[in-house]
Structures are given as structure tokens and as C-alpha cells.
Amino acid sequence: MKLTSFQSKILIALISLFLLSAVIYFYSSQETTLPKMTVQEKKARFKELIIPAVNEVYAELMEQYQDVSASLKSGDNIEEIEELKVEYKAKSDAELLMALKPHPKSIAIAQAAMESSWATSRFFREAYNIFGVWSFDEDEPRIAALQKRGDKTIWVKEYSSVKASVRDYYRTIARSTAFKEFRKLKMKTDDPFALVKKLDRYSEKGAEYGHELTSIIKFNKFHKLKEVNTED
């Protein structure tokens, strides 16, 4: 059957659209596909990507914690402190300090390794989401998980950088009521093996989650990382 001029134009347009989609898909998949790596190579890549960001965020948060602690003692910067209380849902000075004091880097790094499969997960590759943080706000940058919960789409946050992801993770731990006992305990100890037991609500694995974090920290010697001095 001979095509009319109009039909030919439509066919050409459809073919062009198909080819363009194929090219876009090819290059986007190339950007997020990782080469095959040994376990050692994967871990080395993870450390290069994640640890510098954790170090930076930890140092910044520790400096803020120490500054606020000093202000509470001196009575300075009252307005700023009240704003921080609102941001971190703190009802008292003590709760604010619990929220602001960063927990050991070894825990953050171990969680990053577990949640992102050593920085190889799709969430990390496409959205810098290292910690599997969900999104419940349709107006914020986010991507959909490939699997659903029944008919419900699961969304995870999309970040602009590794550092932004790390900072939001620390903020989540600092604000959520699910980690209140964790925050209380970190004011008494920096022992990561004691603290991870209080992260059972971070994952559906419950208490097993803490056991797995303990194994990751010990096996990879993350607890040997030098922490910033927490003394005032």
C-alpha cells in the first residue's frame, strides 16, 4: 500500500522519535552502569566517594554543637537557639544538644555501605541517595523505586551531591522521634557498638539491623577512624 505524503511524514516522525529515545536511553544507562569491580575495588571506590563527605559534615556539625553548647552556657545567641529548637523539634536545651551532637562517623559510614551496597545502588548512582531515605513530599527532587508496596509507589529523595545526602541523613537522625533513644545514648557514649543497637527502627530488619552494622564496622575497622574531639 502506497503511503500518502502526510502518512510518510508521520512515519518518519515516529521513527525519529523512536531513535531519539533509544539514544537517550543508551547514554543515560551508560552514565549509571558501573564496570565490574572486585570487592576490594568496590570498597576502595566507596571510601573515596563517601568518607571525605562524612568527615566534612561531621566536622561542621561538631563545630555547630560546640558553638551552641557555649552559647547556652553564656546566654548568647538566644534567637538563633530558639530557631534551632524549632528546626530540630527540641523542647529543651538538653534535647537540642542531643539533636546537634553528631554520632560517630563509623556508624554513618557503615550505614552508607549497607544502604547503598557500597555506593553501587541505583538510588546512589541516580540520586546520590546513600542512606535509602524515603521522600513523602512530591514537590522535592526524588526518584521512584522500581518496586512498589502493593499499588503504592515508593519514592526516595534525590540529592545534589554526596555531602548533601550525608547532611540530610544526620538531620533525619537528629529530628525523628524514632531515634530519640539513640540520641539520648550518644550523649553518654561514642561506642558505635552500643549505639547501633538503638537503630533498630531505621530498618524493617529491626534488631538484626544493628547486628549487621556491628559486623560491617568490625570487619572493615571503621571504628578505628579518628573522631573529632568532642570535648568542650
Rank of each mutant, 00 (worst) to 15 (best):
I50W: 05
E41C: 03
Y25N: 09
T33H: 12
T33D: 08
E41Q: 06
Q30M: 13
K47F: 06
K47Y: 07
Y25S: 10
E48C: 06
K43I: 03
T38I: 00
A22T: 09
I51Q: 06
S21L: 15
P35Y: 06
T33F: 10
P35K: 13
T33E: 12
F46N: 02
L19H: 06
K42M: 04
S21Y: 12
L34E: 06
T32Q: 11
I51M: 04
V39A: 11
L20H: 01
T38S: 07
L49T: 00
I51S: 03
E48Q: 14
K47R: 13
F46Y: 09
A44R: 08
Y25R: 09
K47I: 07
L34V: 09
E48Y: 04
T38C: 02
V39T: 09
P35C: 07
Q40D: 13
R45T: 01
I51C: 01
S28C: 10
L34R: 03
K47T: 10
L20K: 00
K36W: 07
I50V: 14
S29K: 15
T38M: 02
A22V: 09
Y27A: 06
K47V: 07
I50K: 03
T32V: 15
P35D: 10
T38R: 01
R45S: 02
K42E: 05
L20Q: 02
L49C: 01
L34P: 09
L49K: 02
V39P: 00
T38P: 00
Y25L: 14
M37K: 13
L34N: 05
S29N: 15
V23K: 07
I24W: 07
A44L: 11
L34A: 05
K47L: 06
K43N: 08
P35N: 12
V39Y: 06
S28L: 14
E31D: 14
F26D: 09
K43H: 10
F26W: 13
F26K: 13
F46Q: 01
L19P: 05
V23H: 08
T32H: 13
P35H: 07
L49Q: 04
Y27R: 06
I50F: 06
K42S: 02
Q40Y: 11
Q30P: 07
K36Q: 14
L49I: 00
R45H: 04
L20W: 03
F26I: 13
